[in-house]
Simulated assay, not measured.
Amino acid sequence: MTRVVLIHGIGQHLKGPQTITETWFPALNDGLTVSGASTLPRHDVSVAFYGDLFRRPGHRGVGEPPLDASDVELGLEYELLLSWWQAAADAEAQVPGPEAPARLRTPRIVQRALNALSHSAFFTGLAESVMIGSARQVRRYFTEPEVRRAAGERLSRAVTSETTTIVAHSLGSVVAYETLCAHPQWHDLTLITLGAPLAVRGLVFDRLHPPPQGETARWPVPLKRWINIADHGDVVALVKELAPSFGSRIQDLTVNNGAHAHDVRPYLTARETGLVLAETLA
């Protein structure tokens, strides 16, 4: 019996469903505990895993081939990195903004963005390849139909007649939204989105399936309730409130995730998330 289905975001391509569960499940139950609710047994939770769709095939070298600023593709990858850079600079004093003068050794705008993001809470300690790879996964989802279709199929297989709630993080919120819209025969589901980039105009919102009509996207038929939770410092969730873009029925909440604004674990351990989940399971 799967009452709660979890779907992850970017950067999980070297993991698997059991690895994701090891991280998400205790954090989810911690959120329920701090909210005063009963915890869930392991068999009530499953993971819709699609990270392997982005995993590179084997090669003769050691590790993954490195990516640098010259590998960033113009268009969505480029625009995402610049958007994350601006958001990180707005939220964190230690991150130099795009208006800061470029040093001579980093004249390229992409290199400046990568250098700045390396000082942000979300990307600190990560190699350039990882930052570029994160933007690339978003680009591949929207531009490679087979990846998009396969990700949705993973979620649709995880949802059963016993499922009441889908918890989606980051890019997983896009997969969840599009899959829910594609399955109008499902009913009485609750969607909890964490750090969702769904309402980012020009990068995500305008690329959704089904396409938004004007300023508003379609409400997924299977949903009886949608709660969106965001940290003000989350640079991936550039637009924190989804209600203006997806309808007033959405309940937008804010949490404080500390230094790791986009990390799924503090999202799940937050009392606000625990309360919402407890209500959907009651």
Rank of each mutant, 00 (worst) to 15 (best):
G11N: 07
L208Y: 07
Y78W: 03
E178K: 06
L208E: 06
I229G: 11
H187W: 06
T143D: 15
A102T: 00
W226L: 13
V159Y: 02
G133F: 01
C181Q: 13
L275F: 06
R60G: 13
H59I: 02
N257E: 14
E73C: 04
Q86R: 03
I192C: 15
A27S: 09
N29P: 11
E272W: 00
R139S: 09
L203T: 01
S38C: 08
K224S: 09
D252Q: 14
L117G: 04
R218H: 12
V221N: 03
R265A: 09
D44S: 04
L203W: 04
A230T: 12
T216W: 12
W186I: 02
G152I: 13
L76H: 05
V174P: 14
Q251I: 04
H8K: 09
L67P: 00
L53G: 02
R136I: 00
V200L: 14
A91I: 01
L275Q: 15
I7V: 15
I229N: 08
L28A: 09
G172K: 03
S35K: 01
V264Q: 01
R225F: 01
Q185E: 14
H209I: 07
G16S: 15
Q12Y: 10
D234Q: 12
Y78H: 10
S83T: 03
Y50H: 03
S46P: 02
V47G: 04
H262A: 10
R201Q: 01
I227E: 07
S245A: 14
P41M: 04
V45L: 08
L76R: 06
H187K: 14
L281D: 04
T280P: 13
L28K: 02
E241I: 00
G214M: 02
G202T: 05
A113G: 15
H119T: 05
G202C: 08
I109S: 08
A150V: 09
V159F: 12
T33P: 04
D30F: 11
E272F: 00
Q18P: 05
V95H: 11
A278C: 11
I109L: 13
W219L: 15
G172Y: 10
G75D: 05
G51E: 01
P57Q: 13
